[in-house]
Design a protein around this nucleic acid. Structure first.
Lengths: 100, 100
DNA sequence: TTGACATGATACCAAATGGTTTCATATTTA
DNA sequence: TAAATATGAAACCATTTGGTATCATGTCAA
């Protein structure tokens, strides 16, 4: 599961970065105090976990958030829906407001 | 974050077990092909991550799902809300149906 | 074509992880 | 009180993880 990919804080921060802009490996690496090689490993793990997509463009690899992958992890929580009815109720009431 | 606690499949399975019933360590351990000590380690990690609560009762430790902890992890995903509008739309239409 | 640039890949290392076994401690209960 | 029960805790081990450094490869541009 993609949960393993999300277990590391660096990788979660990479995802937030990529939520703003797709970036090459070097561009992602600029934001962290570690080697490009280390960042690339993280990106590979995120890619393996389906949380990002990689588009090769010449000598660059453009990394972008993959919403579908994130969704698959997110949906795991639906198993526990019964435990947070309040949240759904809150959402429901906000949607009702929105529809008036 | 509790993501580390969720990274291991055994721990995720423990959470699903506890979603059905709160259980002692020994009861949880019955469901897995590993030592009680190993299961107890997993339960400690889940507890450290705030995903379960433990109520000591005599010589037993009763482990129960902690919805609040799960919610904190779940809410991390809200950062990416902009990326899955469709999901919210789906939910919205289901709620609309529900309200008719 | 040659050099600079972006990445791939590999070997290596320390620390963390997931497991085991063994023994100690606390609590029932006969 | 003594034996059985439920857990705590520590030592140990193999594997994984997160990081480094180094070198190879492919691509762009002069």
């Amino acid at each position: 599961m993609g949960f393993r990919a999300l277990a590391d804080p660096t990788r979660r921060n990479i995802l937030r970065l990529l939520a703003a802009n797709e970036m090459t490996i070097a561009e992602v690496a600029e934001n962290f105090d570690m080697t490009r090689a280390a960042v690339k490993k993280h990106l590979s793990i995120l890619s393996d976990g389906g949380l990002i997509t990689v588009q090769v463009s010449g000598r660059s690899r453009v990394n972008a958030l993959n919403p579908d992958g994130l969704r698959r992890v997110f949906d795991w929580f639906s198993y526990f829906d019964a435990f947070w009815d309040e949240r759904l109720d809150t959402l429901k009431s906000e949607i009702e407001k929105d529809m008036q």
